[in-house]
Design a binder for these strands. Structure first.
Length: 273
DNA sequence: CGCTTTGTTGAAAT
DNA sequence: TATTTCAACAAAGC
């Protein structure tokens, strides 16, 4: 389940491998038309052919190939993976798109669930208008959070998952951030205090940075690199996936409930309602 | 069979 | 009427 730290891990791994190479063509091995959000592989090829990959960047959970002219943007959704090693024979049925590069190497998009998406565009306006701030930017302040929260009534977890407020948090890290902040997931946004917003800001940066340092969390299916390397943040999780286990702080069993249609883990003692 | 995941979508609620 | 929230959806493995 790639969230911001996982996408950043992929970006760091891939950047030195594909930068300064040119794209020769785009391919859809089977008719996975939805992967390219509307356009055909042929049309995609026409738009990116012979362009060099200048930079690999990230915005929220999106991975962006900045080309000499235009952008090629990937969203991994649940099970998407991007790598350069040639897929095994059994893996080809999950390759929903691939690109041929100028040095003869390939860039493969493997996606078991096929929820992943690839977008070709001349600018990144389409993404900027839907995403909120980057968690590592100076824009993440207690004041920003409080302003975003104060007019709303929904749960604080729902707000953390809202990509138009903060881009990059998903289910795992939202639960972890709330634990570090001592906030119950169902706390109404409007009743989150300024002091708690300060705690949230610190928890968001700390959680995401630590996860990036450890190459993300491999909980179910996240691997990166050319040899299916897993992330090491799993051992650092305080609540996610620890249902029934003792809280690391107070030994109270971790509870799992359902909030905004997502599995939600918290410590009933450290995160009182 | 039902549960799981994300972001979009259109509908419903406020 | 406008804003905000939410259930359904898509896909397939377990």
């Amino acid at each position: 389940m790639p969230e911001l730290p996982e996408v950043e891990t992929v970006r760091r791994h891939l950047e030195p491998l594909i930068c300064r190479k040119r794209i020769v063509s785009a391919h859809l091995p089977e008719n996975y038309q939805k992967t390219f959000s509307g356009i055909t592989a042929a049309e995609c090829t026409r738009r990116i052919k012979d362009q060099s990959i200048d930079l690999l960047s990230r915005r929220g959970k999106y991975l962006i190939l900045e080309l000499s002219s235009g952008f090629l943007t990937f969203h991994l959704r649940m099970t998407g993976r991007i790598f350069q090693s040639v897929p095994s024979e059994s893996d080809w049925k999950y390759i929903t798109a691939w690109f041929l590069l100028s040095d003869g190497s390939g860039l493969y998009f493997k996606d078991v669930r096929k929820f992943g998406r690839i977008v070709v565009s001349d600018s990144m306006e389409w993404l900027e208008e839907k995403l909120g701030i980057e968690p590592f930017s100076e824009e993440l302040t207690p004041e920003y959070l409080q302003a975003s929260f104060s007019t709303r009534k929904r749960s604080v977890k729902g707000a953390l998952l809202d990509q138009s407020i903060i881009a990059g948090l998903g289910n795992i890290y939202a639960d972890e951030v709330l634990f570090l902040s001592g906030l119950h997931p169902e706390t109404p946004c409007g009743s989150v205090t300024g002091k708690q917003c300060t705690l949230l800001c610190k928890a968001i940066v700390k959680t995401l940075q630590t996860a990036i340092d450890l190459n993300g969390t491999t909980f179910q299916s996240f691997y990166f690199g050319e040899e299916e390397t897993s992330g090491e943040f799993l051992s650092q999780l305080n609540v996610f996936g620890r249902t029934g286990l003792g809280c690391r702080v107070c030994k109270t069993p971790i509870v799992k409930t359902r909030v905004v249609q997502r599995g939600t883990h918290y410590c009933p003692r450290c995160q009182p309602n």
